[in-house]
Design a protein around this nucleic acid. Structure first.
Lengths: 341, 341
DNA sequence: ATTTTTTTTAGAAACGATTTAGAACTTTTA
DNA sequence: TAAAAGTTCTAAATCGTTTCTAAAAAAAAT
């Protein structure tokens, strides 16, 4: 592999001059720069980032930790992150937490070993110690931006911030939409415990129900999770408990899909018998068996916004967390409540 | 950030001894190792990978280039890759080619600058020069494993290999399935030009049709691509050309979904009027409006197998490309052909 | 007690770039 | 014409680790 030294020798220059020429420094003549650049191209010179990094303490590397890229929601975040990072001249190291705290911290440690300049993190929902990762990052002086969710009390970490969507408002929109269609018995299938997004969406549901004539009743709330299977289980439980309902709000599209699956198998028609609202608006929502009414999250923007925040943190600025807007997308899984048979 | 030196000073040892102790070298006493490891933990020591890499020429880094992680198919590959890489002690740098040759080569160059020990690549379908990337990698002495597709003639690159699925066989399965259901007029919606996968799947379709009594007719073949929109366009063209057909084989699930969308809008019922087979079996296939009969690709295994091949290449072994098995998954988008009205 | 062998630790150099400081040369200014 | 200023390049030190070589200490053998 060619090095600066090779170029320097070929052109009878100092290594320094070559280094500076390639970085377009001001104190190198245009003629020399041209010669150097040509030679560099000729021998296919690729700078050694490890050496550069070691000396300059600039890795131009971001670490990204998501539960799994398998999930479209997270892969959209990663996509947004990578696109924006590339624009700003950074590359990304991708790691998976599997939503487990111990994996998360192990991965962050590995990222730190690579001298990443910042970390983008979808915090694992299950922590043994909620702040361990943030604490480690603080100790290392590495800023972090969380996406999608964040632990309550994260404000105390100066080098941390987060980008989420307006979860509570989104859930309010969803619930209000159902109320306006005449539904009164509306289930809520909660997301995983320990996720601020779950809490916020549940909060939006509870508030809207409480403010309505329907009122909030906690026997209409079921713990699901964030995947299809959890949606199946939750709705099955609701059915087996013989709860009466005409509509369902789900933590996300996958939970909605799982619920829809079971409902249809049990003979409920959607939306004739049961209306259903998802959250997220991934590819699946629009193309599901019955296209889902859902709350649209600007997933890619979540990623790009997070990188922008991270850059500000790196520059030492104090940044406020951001909340991105959401909107209701009405498709075919919701309809006016049908009069009781 | 704590360094080896800090530990050495605290324990009154040489930097070397500490370095070796942490790597569990054979010529350091157990007592010293214990002391060192304890101190390392105490001060939260994280080794500097850049320095390590610079000196030892081992980055323990793989570069991964996919068109976009947005696409579930590719994100599944990335997931498989990362999982296996982690097992083998490697981290991954993720980059996007957008399926464009110039992006691809630029990204590979950036990966090389990071001293990656190997590259995993889904080659862009559009090359200005098909072998440019492989050539660059050969020059740099970095092995590469391609996934999903590869340029014809790639055998000449000793440090390159690839992992694909049995594309041709899969298309044969799909076509035969339709023939067995009594279909004779079967469309094929091709994948992008320049992809070996497209060619192989088309080949499987052509062979099976040619061998059957139905025979192969090229007016039943339409160029689509790899996304939903391209599926829409291709089927629209088929309809506008007034081609008579009772079944469709699509390059992948997304193309199938796009086609189904248009078909249903135009009043065709699936599978009553038109049978449809996808390829891939992503999340969407099982949960689409009408659950798709499709060819299952072991996407995650594709990723893990690729990493294993890459490791062999790194060890200097000559490896043969791999073909992973596929299987037909019958759902609800295919049915016996209905007698002409 | 001396030599040999084995175990354990230390020193110096190196990896490939950048930072800092300053030298050599040219041009401008007084 | 000498001093000041600007331009262009160079030398040496350095980043944090590992490799290579060798020295010191401990244990075993004579």
């Amino acid at each position: 592999m060619a090095t600066l030294k090779d170029i320097a020798q070929a052109l009878d220059l100092s290594v320094m001059a070559v280094s500076k020429a390639l970085r377009d420094a001001s104190d190198i003549s245009a003629a020399t720069k041209a010669r150097v650049q040509e030679e560099a191209r000729r021998i296919n010179y690729v700078p050694n980032q490890s050496a550069r990094n070691l000396r300059s303490h600039q890795s131009r590397l971001f670490g990204v930790v998501v539960p799994n890229v398998n999930n479209t929601y997270y892969s959209n975040l990663v996509w947004g992150i990578e696109r924006q990072a590339e624009v700003m001249g950074y590359q990304i190291l991708l790691a998976h937490s599997l939503d487990q705290g111990d994996c998360e911290i192990a991965e962050v440690r590995r990222l730190l070993a690579r001298q990443v300049e910042g970390v983008l993190l979808v915090p694992a929902v299950r922590w043994q110690n909620r702040f361990m990762t943030l604490e480690l990052l603080r100790q290392s002086g590495i800023p972090v931006v969380m996406l999608d969710r964040y632990p309550a009390g994260a404000e105390q970490f100066q080098q941390a911030s987060w980008v989420v969507c307006r979860d509570q408002y989104g859930a309010e929109l969803a619930t209000r939409h159902l109320l306006e269609l005449g539904h009164r018995e509306i289930l809520h299938l909660c997301g995983p415990n320990g996720s601020s997004a779950s809490a916020a969406r549940f909060g939006g549901y509870r508030k809207t129900m409480g403010d309505s004539e329907a009122g909030f009743r906690d026997n209409l709330v079921f713990l699901a999770g964030s995947d299809i299977e959890s949606g199946r289980k939750a709705i099955s439980q609701a059915i087996s408990e013989k709860v009466s309902f005409t509509a369902v709000t789900a933590f996300n599209d996958l939970v909605a899909v799982g619920a829809a699956d079971v409902l249809q198998h049990q003979g409920f028609r959607i939306p004739t018998d049961v209306s259903l609202v998802g959250f997220g608006d991934g590819l699946l929502a629009a193309n599901f068996r019955v296209p889902l009414t859902t709350i649209r999250i600007p997933q890619i923007e979540l990623g790009t916004a997070a990188v922008r925040l991270l850059e500000e943190l790196i520059r030492g600025a104090a940044v406020d967390p951001r909340e991105l807007p959401v909107e209701l997308v009405v498709r075919y899984s919701t309809a006016r409540v049908s009069p009781p048979a």
